[in-house]
Design a protein around this nucleic acid. Sequence first.
DNA 1: CGCGGAATGGACCAACCAGTACATCCGCGT
DNA 2: ACGCGGATGTACTGGTTGGTCCATTCCGCG
Lengths: 196, 196
Amino acid sequence: MAEILAVATQEFAAKGLSGARIDAIADATRTSKRMIYYYFGSKEGLYLAVLEESYRSVRLTEGELHLADLAPEDALARLVGFTFDHHWNSQDYIRIVMSENMQRGEYLAQSKIIQKLNVPAINAIRELYERGVAQGLFRPGLDPIDIHASISALCFFNVSNQYTFDLIFKRDGRTPRALKQRRANIVEMILRYVRR
Amino acid sequence: MAEILAVATQEFAAKGLSGARIDAIADATRTSKRMIYYYFGSKEGLYLAVLEESYRSVRLTEGELHLADLAPEDALARLVGFTFDHHWNSQDYIRIVMSENMQRGEYLAQSKIIQKLNVPAINAIRELYERGVAQGLFRPGLDPIDIHASISALCFFNVSNQYTFDLIFKRDGRTPRALKQRRANIVEMILRYVRR
DNA sequence: CGCGGAATGGACCAACCAGTACATCCGCGT
DNA sequence: ACGCGGATGTACTGGTTGGTCCATTCCGCG
């Protein structure tokens, strides 16, 4: 059952909801198609389970970065850098989210776990941002969700659009060198955005 | 034939390559399925035509912003703001690009028109950036492609991930007010990034 | 041991869907 | 008028695919 979910995640991440094949998932599992329907009811039920599990597992690693121990700028740099690495190392998750946005969030809207998702990332940002403002390091008046949107956008795009972007600009953004550079630039961009 | 392309663009943008239905496209056209195969050979041929046409039509509007007439900062602000609006108003295009990234750029790689795509946007940025550096307004050492990546990421994400993002944070980023705010923030972020 | 419900296997089905066969039609140049 | 190549309508097909039926096995519990 956990095996089904793991295999299904790969398949949905690779092909999207409509491109994924139940038979392919079944064949890659030690169980059968019959069992998939036994546990998940339908292709869409399986997709929803994959979607929820993807969001849940992402939250786990997002856990504790010990940002409170760091100076505001260091904490923010660490958060952004971590987000960048984490996105790069969770390409299946990224693709599931892309897929879900292609479905206009139809399935995520059905999920009940969404309600608990917003808190952690935003709270971390808000906390460190307010400390920065209080210390006169950051400019006031910014919205933590907006900062989060920018961090997400920059880190997400780096994974999600790598294929078309690299093709058009005839480069390879996958080399360690290019990744390191891009990562540093994104960190710098966010820091400059919040600094006074 | 142009009608087929227009309808197919909508269908592929709405459902992705594997989710799109040739019959649906045919039914929404005044022609028949027979004609689609007559002109485009296969579903994938049609998709490729749609992909190329999408990129081509985007380049058109990207044309002349008269950035050379403006001071570097104004020119950059104008470019970013324009990119933001343009992305927002070209959601079908965005979704085609998302779809293509889900296919790992497989079809764009087959296209011969890609070679001509990189030049315009980058040249505009390079030109204005170098003017800014020369005037001591911008810090030196930045890569125009990197700047472009950031602008694209911020503007693209705003469209591509609107569904999941809005759901998770229980907000509506589609209101004119929210869009205006986000747009201003993105412009500010890019300006702060390049400023000395 | 034997009962009941959960777990499985494997063949099967009906709908769907990309793609085609075939015949026809239109319009233009000669 | 005629021929010819491009355009088009209709019906069809063959493989695919999500989903199911029936029968069987497994396993914990009284």
